[in-house]
């Protein structure tokens, strides 16, 4: 399953809830304010790093760049554009949009 998260982890528990309910082998795509979860050196970085064993992380690059986060995304988070977003929804057989 592909999960999308669009909330900053510093504002809401959406990201945390998503991680808690994402099965092994699933993917999490961070979009909109969700991309803040992909930043290096934050209070949630360790949690993301730990989850990377079971879950593949992606961040929507246009949202990353819009927020001035270029070059600040942690290693292991894959950047995709909107075409890549579409490809992920095709690759995984269902989408859970965490709002």
């Amino acid at each position: 399953m592909l999960h999308t998260v669009n909330k900053s982890p510093f504002q809401k528990n959406t990201f945390e809830s998503c991680i808690k309910h994402a099965a092994k082998g699933s993917a999490v795509l961070l979009i909109e304010d969700g991309v803040y979860a992909a930043l290096k050196g934050t209070s949630v970085s360790a949690e993301v790093q730990q989850a990377m064993g079971d879950i593949t992380f992606y961040a929507l690059e246009p949202d990353v760049n819009a927020r001035g986060l270029k070059g600040k995304v942690m290693d292991g988070v894959n950047l995709v554009d909107y075409a890549g977003f579409v490809d992920l929804t095709v690759k995984f057989d269902r989408v859970q949009s965490w709002l």
């Binding site: 669009n6 909109e32 246009p62 554009d81 909107y82 075409a83 977003f85 579409v86």
Partner: peptide, 14 residues
Amino acid sequence: TAYNFATAALAAGH
């Protein structure tokens, strides 16, 4: 975001 997603999906032939 929905608009950008829709545009990309259409461009990919979906």
